[in-house]
């Protein structure tokens, strides 16, 4: 055996052991998901047998129960509308402002930035109670708009921050050329800057959707029976006398499915957003 093949053998073993360790970690990470899937397919009584087991049955009863007996379609629709609304509003507010912020110097620039970054430091509980009172004064309490407006505070700030960073790294020459060609600033932004930053916009949209979809405390305090979202609706599976693990699991699967799917499909953009703060 020559030196090189011994070295490559060592490398291979090292890589294999790294992968094995990672697979173990992955098992820990995936376990709750597997449990959720298994429980959503189990019969109610089998959940209470000792020792507890995974995959005791494969029935879709729990799914049909939640669709027939609970108003899950309404909750899903509310969750979708609120998430989409937040996404659109966040983009409308965050993208043009992020662009302008990267292109112009002005007094108070720092104050605006600090105010926007402060949203991240603000505990939700601080804002949610006054927000509730304010929404009531606006006559919006209990509507989807109430949740959209508060979700957008957090998401527009993130979009703004992300987009201003991205536009900062785009070359200004193209827009300047367009300006000289007689394009207005608005057209230069829409024609040149926006197409170049599509990946960033996808990232921002994805984050706004996920954060809004996963929100609980705002929906808890701001919605009415007609605007209940999916996470909030899930709580009613835990009645006073019946432990509804299997129904909860069916709804849980429905709740996590779209966000997991989106994050896997748009993985590149999702990771881009996660790492943005760290690398910048």
């Amino acid at each position: 055996m020559n030196v090189i093949s011994r070295q490559s053998l060592l490398d291979k073993t090292l890589l294999a052991s790294r992968i094995i360790i990672l697979l173990l970690i992955l098992a820990f990470i995936a376990f709750p998901v597997i449990w959720l899937l298994s429980t959503s397919l189990a019969s109610r009584i089998s959940m209470f047998k000792i020792p507890p087991r995974l995959f005791t049955g494969f029935k879709l009863d729990n799914y049909s129960y939640v669709f027939e007996k609970m108003e899950i379609s309404k909750w899903i629709m509310n969750s979708i509308l609120i998430s989409l609304g937040t996404m659109i509003l966040s983009l409308l507010l965050g993208v043009p402002s992020g662009y302008a912020f990267s292109r112009v110097e002005f007094k108070g620039k720092k104050i605006l930035l600090i105010m926007i970054l402060l949203t991240r430091a603000l505990p939700t509980i601080v804002i949610v109670m006054p927000f509730r009172i304010i929404m009531q004064n606006f006559g919006l309490l209990g509507t989807r708009w109430a949740v959209i407006l508060i979700d957008t505070v957090y998401n527009a700030a993130f979009t703004f921050w992300l987009m201003s960073g991205l536009f900062e790294s785009l070359p200004k020459e193209l827009e300047e050329a367009a300006l000289i060609d007689g394009c207005g600033t608005v057209r230069a932004f829409i024609r040149i800057a926006v197409p170049l930053s599509i990946p960033g916009i996808i990232t921002a949209a994805l984050f706004a959707f996920i954060l809004s979809w996963n929100d609980f405390i705002f929906a808890l305090t701001l919605t009415s029976p007609d605007t209940t979202t999916l996470p909030l609706g899930m709580l009613s599976t835990f009645g006073i006398l019946q432990q509804g693990w299997t129904h909860m699991a069916a709804m849980g699967m429905i709740a996590i499915f779209p966000v997991i799917l989106l994050s896997l499909l748009l993985q590149r953009y999702y990771i881009g957003g996660l790492t943005f703060g760290g690398v910048k």
Partner: peptide
């Protein structure tokens, strides 16, 4: 591997709470 490691970060926190609560159930979890 990296792709799958990401899953918990998109997991709806309330669902995560309910799942772990059931897993932690002192007698049947």
């Amino acid at each position: 591997l990296r792709t799958f490691i990401l899953i918990p970060t998109v997991f709806t926190p309330l669902v995560a709470g309910l799942v772990w609560k059931s897993l932690y159930h002192p007698d049947m979890g």
